[in-house]
């Protein structure tokens, strides 16, 4: 049986994130938490590969690391139709950078034994796009990032063909399994969730901690991280917008000239 692991993340809903103009601080707490939009696509790709898999079929497992509340995104994944949900939850995981996060996820992957791991291109809070490739390296697997369409699994299920675009260059790759891929938002339109499927998973989410993964505390969190944030700050607010008089297209034209160089 083909086993597909999808790594998903709970992120703050950025539509609700705002910067307080008075204090310059981020109103992060007010933002609701949602499933990272790229991960919806990753789940969709996994479910479509499963639907196309003949023989003894496929199993799709959703995996997340995060605090108690992060189980909500596993329920979202369940609503889309994944077979199994695993929640990595331990105080020791807090503060992990991308290296430590990838190490923890890779440890879970080793236990689950997937043939394929799918991640979203990046999470919209950190925007690093690093965890997928880092996990592949720590597993000693090949990876393909920025995949733009549904991969074609070869009949023997030992490799797949996929398309991706890197900086204006389209590539068609044959990637041996097991492998890690990260997907673009445009790779597939996610399906609508089913409330019944979601409800059915509520009691079945598996919860793993440090001990389950067999990791040491020093491998995780701040201790296991290779980077440290030395300070954070909010950027100075942009100066107020200069509104042109209505109908003054000449002024608009002039405002476009600055960078146009010799062309204007």
């Amino acid at each position: 049986m083909l086993r597909i692991l999808v790594c998903i993340k709970q992120v703050p809903n950025t539509t609700e994130i705002s910067v307080d103009r008075e204090t310059g601080l981020l109103n992060r707490e007010r933002a609701a938490a949602v499933l990272n939009p790229f991960d919806e696509t990753a789940l969709e790709i996994a479910l479509r590969i499963k639907a196309r898999t003949g023989g003894d079929g496929a199993e799709v497992i959703a995996l997340t690391m995060g605090p108690e509340a992060a189980r909500a995104v596993l329920l979202d994944a369940a609503g889309l139709g994944v077979d199994r949900c695993v929640h990595l939850c331990d105080a020791a995981f807090r503060g992990s950078d991308t290296y430590a996060t990838a190490k923890i996820l890779a440890a879970a992957a080793k236990k689950l034994g997937p043939d394929l791991i799918i991640c979203g291109r990046q999470a919209i809070d950190g925007d690093t796009a690093q965890v997928g490739p880092s996990m592949a390296e720590q597993l000693h697997w090949p990876e393909a990032a920025y995949v733009t369409a549904l991969p074609q699994l070869h009949p023997a299920k030992t490799s797949m063909t996929l398309c991706r675009t890197l900086d204006g260059v389209e590539e068609e790759l044959r990637v041996p399994l097991p492998a890690v891929i990260t997907v673009q938002k445009s790779a597939a339109e996610p399906r609508l969730p089913s409330y019944q499927l979601r409800a059915a998973m509520t009691e079945k989410i598996e919860r793993w901690d440090l001990k389950t993964l067999g990791l040491a505390k020093e491998d995780c969190g701040l201790a296991g991280s290779k980077t440290r944030v030395s300070r954070t700050f909010t950027p100075p607010p942009r100066p107020l917008c200069t509104m042109l008089p209505e109908g003054d297209i000449l002024a608009l034209r002039a405002s476009l000239k600055i960078t146009e160089g010799g062309k204007a």
Binding site: R28, K226, T227, R228, T232, F233, T234
Partner: peptide, 15 residues
């Protein structure tokens, strides 16, 4: 930048 540029973080490599 993080959070789409709403916050900046200065990062140091450990080790």
């Amino acid at each position: 930048p993080a959070f789409g540029g709403n916050l900046y973080a200065s990062i140091l490599t450990q080790g």
